[in-house]
């Protein structure tokens, strides 16, 4: 999937994946897609809930070899 920006949050524990994602997202335009890579299992539920709370759209997420990848479209 195409993204406008990639955030590597691998190895970071909660709350850092969300804190970083929020910071990057602030500098992006509505409609643009942020791709996030994370290894913290808790980030799956947290990024979904954060997207919902912030009005963003979690378009897709995958897991491969312990790495979670998220595509979130700014709302």
């Amino acid at each position: 999937m195409k993204s406008n920006k990639v955030l590597d949050a691998k190895g970071l524990a909660c709350p850092m994946p969300v804190v970083r994602a929020r910071k990057v997202m602030k500098e992006m335009e509505t409609g643009e897609v942020l791709e996030i890579l994370a290894t913290d299992k808790g980030s799956v539920a947290d990024l979904a809930a954060w997207s919902k709370s912030g009005g963003h759209d979690l378009v897709k997420h995958t897991e491969e070899a312990g790495v979670f990848t998220f595509w979130i479209q700014k709302g």
Partner: peptide
């Protein structure tokens, strides 16, 4: 007593 506010809403 409880208050539940997700951390990302307090950043």
């Amino acid at each position: 007593q409880y208050l539940n506010i997700p951390y990302f809403d307090l950043l």
